[in-house]
Amino acid sequence: MKAIIGGTLIALFFSAAGQAADVAAAPHGTKGDIIYGDPKADIEIIEYGSLTCAHCAHFANDILPAIKEKYLDTGKARLHYRNIIRDQVDLAISAVARCGDMEMTHKLTAAFFASQDKWIHLGSEAAMIDSLATVAAAAGMERTEFDRCAADADMRKGLVEMTQRGAQLYGVRQTPTVIVNGMVLPDYSAESIEAAIGLSLK
């Protein structure tokens, strides 16, 4: 797991707020929790994650599919994804991922995590953004839309505030952090999640 750097978050907050006068807010978008599964399911799983976090990509690509098949798709549980913003690239592409409806947000989030190993080591923010724009284009988003969404001040501000609330509500300091029915788990393994779900089902 990767710890969140407080100074970086402060810088991101002022960066997001400073753009408010210059960039128009997107007319639509997925704000708040990104929900997977039946929103009315009794068991609530919360994941605090970051799109630039390798452990979060591992969770999304290798652990979540089995949890989804066994618990989310069957209506036993729902998962609420909440962003923890770690850096400027994370802030930009998290805003991009949320620029459309929930279905498009699911699609882009999955695409960014699935391709993370191809763009995360490119070195510069500009190179990573260009690579991510190509990923988004394959999902149906043109570059002009990508750039507009990445710069949306309202969405960026909301993402920084979501990060702050995670720290305030659950003491989140690393990603991913997984919570099942209010219980913060010691790790994000499938075994820990299934054990917590099992307790909730009793």
Results as ranks from 00 to 15, higher is better:
residue 64 L to Y: 14
residue 65 P to L: 04
residue 65 P to I: 08
residue 65 P to W: 08
residue 66 A to F: 07
residue 66 A to H: 13
residue 67 I to G: 09
residue 67 I to E: 05
residue 68 K to W: 09
residue 68 K to Q: 15
residue 68 K to L: 09
residue 69 E to F: 03
residue 70 K to Q: 04
residue 70 K to D: 03
residue 70 K to F: 02
residue 70 K to C: 02
residue 71 Y to I: 03
residue 73 D to Q: 15
residue 74 T to Q: 09
residue 76 K to H: 10
residue 77 A to K: 00
residue 78 R to W: 06
residue 78 R to K: 10
residue 79 L to C: 08
residue 80 H to Y: 13
residue 80 H to S: 14
residue 82 R to G: 06
residue 83 N to Q: 15
residue 84 I to K: 15
residue 84 I to Y: 08
residue 85 I to V: 11
residue 85 I to N: 08
residue 86 R to N: 12
residue 86 R to F: 07
residue 87 D to F: 00
residue 87 D to V: 00
residue 88 Q to T: 08
residue 90 D to T: 02
residue 91 L to A: 07
residue 92 A to C: 02
residue 92 A to H: 01
residue 93 I to N: 04
residue 95 A to P: 01
residue 96 V to T: 01
residue 96 V to E: 04
residue 96 V to Q: 02
residue 98 R to W: 07
residue 99 C to T: 10
residue 100 G to V: 00
residue 100 G to H: 14
residue 100 G to D: 07
residue 101 D to I: 03
residue 103 E to T: 09
residue 104 M to H: 11
residue 104 M to N: 14
residue 105 T to F: 08
residue 106 H to K: 12
residue 106 H to S: 06
residue 107 K to I: 03
residue 108 L to Q: 03
residue 109 T to S: 15
residue 109 T to F: 07
residue 110 A to Q: 13
residue 114 A to Q: 13
residue 114 A to G: 09
residue 114 A to C: 12
residue 115 S to Y: 05
residue 115 S to H: 09
residue 115 S to Q: 12
residue 116 Q to F: 00
residue 116 Q to T: 00
residue 120 I to F: 07
residue 120 I to C: 07
residue 121 H to V: 11
residue 121 H to W: 09
residue 122 L to C: 05
residue 124 S to W: 04
residue 125 E to Q: 13
residue 126 A to D: 09
residue 127 A to N: 08
residue 129 I to K: 09
residue 132 L to N: 08
residue 133 A to D: 12
residue 133 A to H: 01
residue 133 A to T: 12
residue 134 T to I: 09
residue 135 V to A: 04
residue 135 V to E: 11
residue 135 V to F: 06
residue 136 A to N: 06
residue 136 A to E: 01
residue 137 A to G: 13
residue 138 A to Q: 10
residue 139 A to G: 11
residue 140 G to A: 10
residue 140 G to D: 05
residue 141 M to E: 11
residue 144 T to E: 14
residue 145 E to W: 09
residue 149 C to W: 03
residue 149 C to F: 00
residue 151 A to E: 02
residue 151 A to W: 07
residue 152 D to A: 05
residue 152 D to V: 04
residue 154 D to S: 13
residue 156 R to A: 03
residue 157 K to T: 08
residue 158 G to Y: 04
residue 159 L to T: 02
residue 160 V to D: 07
residue 160 V to G: 09
residue 161 E to C: 05
residue 168 Q to T: 12
residue 168 Q to F: 13
residue 168 Q to P: 11
residue 169 L to G: 15
residue 169 L to Y: 14
residue 170 Y to I: 07
residue 171 G to D: 14
residue 171 G to P: 06
residue 172 V to E: 06
residue 172 V to C: 01
residue 173 R to Y: 12
residue 173 R to H: 15
residue 173 R to A: 14
residue 175 T to F: 05
residue 178 V to Y: 09
residue 178 V to M: 14
residue 182 G to S: 06
residue 183 M to E: 15
residue 183 M to N: 15
residue 185 L to W: 05
residue 185 L to H: 12
